[in-house]
């Protein structure tokens, strides 16, 4: 049997005075796409943050195995170099740091890590051309500082463009669909689908079933109060769209 890309067991985590994730189990195999849904504040972004290695969250129990490695022992940059990618719910503006320069640095760190020669500026621009097209990205964005003054939709599209350049093994997309107009949603979703293959996997966090029409998930999970209270196939997302979360969260509470 193939080894999972991600294996989370009994993960509990929180901030200093508060527990947010209360025992999460989740296994994702290569070639799979999982959707993570759930009410506001249920812990979806926290799970993404803990996986990406954001400071300020304390893991109190459980373990996370990523491609056979103990993920929680790695620095954020090493997780990235191992092929973990987080598309941020709120991408950060970084004034004064040029987008192309930044992405080239990131890409070259990845190549160095794999023992491949670094690309110079010209070769890098050539390399990204196809990705720019794939996401129909406005090229002038690349000449601006990272995310600075980008519109909400431009920021989200830029996240997926970065993903297209870095070609991660596991991509976690945190509400990438929110803020995208209808056409942009199709383009971005289409981009994500083109990047899928038998060796990588996606964890797609969303509130809307619509995205899942384009990026069809193998599994759908519902997070509530830091626990996965229901898992199912893509039909579950449709049911949620109709019925909301009430029936699940109540079930969980009375269980």
């Amino acid at each position: 049997m193939t080894e999972p890309i991600l294996k989370i067991r009994g993960l509990k985590a929180g901030v200093v005075d508060r527990s947010i994730l209360n025992g999460i189990d989740l296994t994702i195999f290569p070639g799979e796409t999982h959707a993570l849904m759930g009410p506001n504040g249920s812990g979806k972004s926290t799970l993404a943050a803990v996986l990406a290695g954001r400071e300020g969250y304390e893991v109190t129990d459980g373990e996370v195995w990523y491609a056979g490695k103990n993920l929680l022992e790695l620095d954020p940059e090493d997780r990235a170099k191992e092929g973990l990618f987080l598309a941020f719910q709120y991408p950060v503006e970084i004034p004064g740091v040029n987008s192309t320069y930044f992405l080239k640095a990131a890409y070259n760190e990845l190549r160095k890590y794999r023992g491949e020669p670094e690309l110079d500026a010209a070769d890098f621009l050539n390399f990204v051309k196809a990705r720019v097209k794939l996401l129909e990205l406005d090229e002038s964005l690349l000449r601006r500082p990272v995310n600075e003054g980008f519109s909400g939709g431009e920021k989200k599209r830029n996240e997926i463009f970065q993903m297209a350049v870095l070609e991660p093994k596991l991509a976690i997309l945190d509400e990438t669909d929110s803020g995208l107009d209808i056409d942009a949603l199709k383009i971005v979703a289409n981009g994500v689908c083109k990047l899928r293959n038998a060796h990588n996997a996606q964890l797609v966090i969303t509130h809307y079933q619509r995205l899942l029409n384009y990026i069809v998930p193998d599994r759908v999970h519902v997070l509530s109060e830091g626990r996965i209270v229901q898992s199912g196939d893509k039909e579950l997302a449709m049911e949620l769209e109709e019925r909301g979360y009430d029936w699940l969260t109540k079930e969980a509470a009375t269980a």
């Binding site: 940059e77 990618f85 950060v92 740091v97």
Partner: peptide, 30 residues
Amino acid sequence: LNPESLFYMRARGLPLEMARHLLIVAFAEE
């Protein structure tokens, strides 16, 4: 230095030192 910016850069694979340096230099370049 803005910790959000540092995390964003590290999450893309930039080592902490490089992320710090880019932010510091950007501040000087202003």
